[in-house]
C-alpha cells in the first residue's frame, strides 16, 4: 500500500463518481480529513493476512431461497405519492436520450 497524498483533484473526481457536487472549500477540507483517516487505515498493512480469506458477509447458515411465487407488492399509487415529481404513472426525470 503506497501513501497517496489526497489531492484536491482526487477528491473532486471521487465526488463526481459518487454524484456529489462539492465546492473548492469542501474539497480541500475533505482531502485533509480523508488523508488523516486513511493514515490510520494504513496500519492494516502490518497485519499478516497471507492465506486468510476475506469475509464479505457473516452468514452462519446457508440462507434459503424464497419460493418462486407471485406476491402482491406495494401499491403503485402509494409509492408514486411520495415522489418529488411525477407524471401519469411514472417518476419524472430530465430527458436522457439525445434525439438530435
Amino acid at each position: 500500500m503506497t501513501s497517496p497524498a489526497f489531492s484536491h483533484d482526487a477528491v473532486r473526481r471521487l465526488a463526481r463518481l459518487a454524484r456529489l457536487s462539492i465546492g473548492d472549500d469542501d474539497a480541500a477540507r475533505l482531502a485533509g480529513e480523508l488523508e488523516k483517516i486513511l493514515a490510520h487505515v494504513r496500519a492494516l498493512e502490518a497485519v499478516d493476512t497471507e492465506g486468510v480469506p476475506p469475509t464479505t458477509h457473516v452468514s452462519v447458515d446457508r440462507l434459503p431461497l424464497r419460493a418462486d411465487e407471485l406476491v402482491v407488492s406495494l401499491d403503485r399509487e402509494a409509492v408514486l405519492a411520495q415522489a418529488p415529481a411525477r407524471a401519469q404513472e411514472g417518476f419524472v426525470v430530465p430527458a436522457f436520450v439525445d434525439e438530435g
Binding site: 500500500m1 487505515v41 492494516l44 497485519v47 493476512t49 486468510v52 476475506p54 469475509t55 464479505t56
Partner: peptide, 12 residues
C-alpha cells in the same frame, strides 16, 4: 489494498 485487506482482517 483497502477493501479486500479490511475484509481479510475482518476474518481475523
Amino acid at each position: 489494498a483497502y477493501y479486500l485487506k479490511a475484509q481479510r482482517v475482518r476474518t481475523l
